[in-house]
Computed example of a mutant assay.
Amino acid sequence: MGRTENPINYEVSTRGRLAELLRAEKAGRTYDELATLTGVSAATLKRAASGKVVPAETVVDSFLAACGSAPRTVRTAKSLRFQARRDELGGPIRVLATTVNTADALSDAFEALHRNAAAPTYREMQKSAGGAYLLPLSSVSRILRRQMLPVDEQQLVAVLRGCRVPEREHGEWVKAWRRAMGRSSSPIDVRGLTWVIDAIRRISTEVRFEALAAGMAPVMAAVEQLDTSRLAAGITPAVAALAATEQLDTSRLAAQMASAIAALPPVAPVTAA
C-alpha cells in the first residue's frame, strides 16, 4: 500500500480542482509507476497533483496519458490548468484593441494578452503561431520584454495566435498596430517615386538594370505598406547591385535614396478626378 498523500492545497481553487482530478485519475497507481510510463520524474508528477503549483501542460498531458484518461477528462484538465494559471497570475485583464494608439500602449496590450492566455511559454507560443519561421523565440522574448514590437503584420498575427487571441479580433489588432507604428492604412501613390529611378539612370549609363530590378522589388513592396524599416532593408540589395558598376557614384545614390525615404510620409493618396 502506498503512502497516504498530503491534503490538496486549495489556496487557488482551480489549481486545487486540477490536483483533485489528477489524483482521481491516478486511481491507485504510484508516482514511481507513472514516472516509468511517462519519463517524467515522480517528484514532478507528485507536485502536479498537490495543488501547490500549476503543472506544465506537457506534464498534465503525460500524466493523463499514462492513466488512460478519456478525451473528455483530458479537455477538462486542460481547461482547469488554463484557468488555474490565469488565476495564479491575478485573473484576466480587460484590454481592447480600439484603445491602443501608441507603441507603449501596444506593449502593455501584449503583456495583458499574454497574461490572459495563462502566460504560455515562448515555445508554446511559437507552436501556436505556426513555427519558428513565423515567430522566432528571440522575437517573442523581446516583444514581451518591451524591447521591440512586431516588425510586420505577419509577425503581429503570429503573436496574437501565440496569445490565443480569436481570429475574429485580429483585424482590430492590425489597425492598432498600424496606429502604434505610425503606419498609414491607405496605399501610397508610388508614381511619386519615378524621379528616384530617373536619378539612378542619370548616375551611370553602365548600370546592370536586371540586377537593379531584382534589388528594387522588396523596396517597392515595402513602399506599398509605408514600412520604412523594410524599405531601408530593401534598398541594400539595390545598392549592392549598382555598386558592381565601377562608374557608379554611390554617395550620390545614397543621398537620392535618403531624400526618397524622407519624402514618403507626406505623399497624399491619389483621388479620382
Results as ranks from 00 to 15, higher is better:
residue 109 A to V: 06
residue 110 F to W: 06
residue 110 F to C: 08
residue 110 F to K: 08
residue 111 E to F: 04
residue 112 A to P: 03
residue 113 L to F: 12
residue 116 N to S: 09
residue 118 A to S: 15
residue 120 P to T: 06
residue 120 P to V: 06
residue 121 T to F: 00
residue 123 R to L: 11
residue 124 E to K: 03
residue 124 E to Y: 03
residue 126 Q to H: 04
residue 128 S to A: 15
residue 128 S to W: 12
residue 129 A to F: 06
residue 129 A to G: 10
residue 131 G to F: 02
residue 132 A to T: 12
residue 134 L to T: 10
residue 135 L to R: 09
residue 136 P to C: 11
residue 139 S to D: 10
residue 143 I to T: 10
residue 144 L to F: 05
residue 145 R to L: 07
residue 146 R to A: 04
residue 147 Q to M: 06
residue 150 P to L: 01
residue 151 V to C: 06
residue 151 V to P: 00
residue 152 D to P: 08
residue 153 E to T: 08
residue 153 E to Q: 07
residue 155 Q to R: 14
residue 156 L to R: 03
residue 156 L to K: 05
residue 156 L to H: 02
residue 160 L to E: 07
residue 161 R to Y: 03
residue 161 R to G: 08
residue 161 R to K: 15
residue 162 G to S: 12
residue 164 R to C: 10
residue 164 R to P: 02
residue 165 V to R: 09
residue 166 P to R: 09
residue 167 E to Q: 15
residue 171 G to K: 14
residue 173 W to G: 06
residue 173 W to F: 04
residue 174 V to I: 15
residue 175 K to C: 03
residue 175 K to E: 12
residue 176 A to F: 01
residue 176 A to S: 07
residue 177 W to I: 12
residue 180 A to D: 04
residue 180 A to M: 12
residue 180 A to T: 11
residue 181 M to G: 05
residue 181 M to P: 05
residue 181 M to A: 14
residue 183 R to M: 15
residue 184 S to M: 09
residue 188 I to W: 04
residue 188 I to E: 04
residue 189 D to G: 03
residue 191 R to L: 10
residue 192 G to D: 06
residue 192 G to Y: 10
residue 193 L to Q: 05
residue 193 L to V: 12
residue 199 A to T: 11
residue 201 R to E: 03
residue 202 R to D: 00
residue 203 I to F: 00
residue 204 S to W: 00
residue 205 T to M: 00
residue 208 R to P: 07
residue 209 F to L: 12
residue 209 F to R: 04
residue 211 A to Q: 10
residue 212 L to N: 00
residue 213 A to M: 13
residue 214 A to E: 14
residue 214 A to Y: 02
residue 214 A to G: 15
residue 215 G to L: 10
residue 215 G to K: 09
residue 217 A to L: 14
residue 217 A to F: 07
residue 217 A to I: 13
residue 222 A to V: 13
residue 222 A to Q: 06
residue 223 V to C: 13
residue 223 V to W: 06
residue 224 E to Q: 15
residue 225 Q to S: 09
residue 225 Q to N: 06
residue 225 Q to R: 15
residue 227 D to Q: 09
residue 227 D to G: 07
residue 228 T to C: 02
residue 228 T to M: 10
residue 228 T to R: 08
residue 228 T to A: 04
residue 228 T to W: 01
residue 230 R to M: 10
residue 231 L to S: 04
residue 232 A to F: 01
residue 238 A to Y: 01
residue 239 V to H: 01
residue 239 V to A: 04
residue 240 A to H: 07
residue 240 A to L: 14
